[in-house]
Design a protein around this nucleic acid. Structure first.
Lengths: 189, 189
DNA sequence: TGAGTAACCAAGCAAGCGCTAGTGTGAGTG
DNA sequence: CACTCACACTAGCGCTTGCTTGGTTACTCA
């Protein structure tokens, strides 16, 4: 709904706390303190604690969509390049908007049905991009397997990186993406 | 600690509720009702709400270890068979003890430090089995890539199945495991 | 200058939380 | 028979929760 700069900043802070503590354990008083205001004032910006969660997830998912579309628009047409670009874009958004995405991945169930329905459309749009890229790669004989299973496995492997990957380590997210693509391609580069 | 049959049954029920509602949203009163007792009586079996969580996770992880060891002991010595056996074992335990594993995967952070330290050893033992199998497969030229990355990616893809896989669907967990192994092997069967 | 508004605060309510204290009760044991 | 002990109950304490209410401040713009 609203998208004031103040609200955006509060949403960013909320995402951080939700990751640290989990949605349920994060109290409105903790949120308010982190934002430098009192707990009552929170409800001037958000009608609900739920609405804060929805704002965090929406923000992250919108960014993911934007980055993926941009990456696909800019990259070459070969299926291999598109697959690599998509994997790179996924990890890029996963680690630049890390907090928002961790919340989206692990606190989705806390959304009330209305918010969940609305955000599901966004997520479906994102996954549709993936399925299209996987289909092209399959058609080109680049990879093999069931289109449905392959995309689930690949997304699972990528999403799970938030549980172990250290962005300060020696490997860049792009390296990671390339390694995964190489792993599922019959012919090593 | 204790392992009375009554306590085991209560642990099973708790796992189910923790999956349905999440650990934080599951109140001791809900747990008690599901178990057919009053909330106060719960604390005769467990000293803490925390201890219930630890019991659930321990149960699941012990089973995973036992099943994986058995599978490895019974299967042939070829790296490919061992890899397939390990993947199958992983999905088998993931879906026969589904509730416990979902809790272990997504509520681990709610453990207090003491319980977490204790259970980490169990999990490390399990992951060590995986790394050994992956190492053999790499050495045999069966798959390619970094040993660390490959095991993380594979475990991620497998663990993520709890988010989308429907055990009542047409595909069996064994099919799933075989498809994943095939996906990362250069030579399609 | 003064009306309108976005942002905030102080105070607190009703409900729900984990957990404790004290008390049966019925089955098993000497 | 007396005794224990696992198991369950009732009652409620002390605290935290999300959220509301009524009012204040600071800024914008006609």
């Amino acid at each position: 709904m609203n998208a004031s700069p103040r609200r955006k900043e509060l949403t960013r802070l909320a995402a951080q706390l939700f990751v640290q503590e989990g949605f349920d354990r994060t109290t409105v008083r903790m949120l308010a303190q982190e934002m430098g205001i009192k707990s009552g004032s929170l409800f001037h910006h958000f009608k609900d604690k739920q609405e804060i969660l929805a704002a965090v997830i929406e923000e992250g998912t919108q960014n993911a969509l934007a980055i993926a579309r941009k990456a696909l628009a800019e990259c070459a047409a070969e299926p291999e390049m598109r697959l690599r670009a998509m994997a790179r874009a996924h990890l890029e958004t996963l680690f630049t908007d890390r907090n928002a995405h961790v919340v989206a991945l692990f606190e989705w169930r806390r959304l009330d049905p209305a918010a969940s329905a609305h955000l599901s459309h966004l997520r479906d749009a994102y996954e549709a991009l993936w399925v299209a890229v996987i289909d092209d790669a399959l058609a080109a004989g680049l990879i093999h397997g069931d289109r449905f299973l392959v995309s689930r496995f690949v997304l699972g492997a990528l999403n799970w990186t938030v549980r172990w990957y250290d962005p300060n380590g020696p490997r860049s997210p792009d390296d990671l993406a390339d390694e995964l693509v190489a792993m599922i391609m019959p012919t090593p580069a």
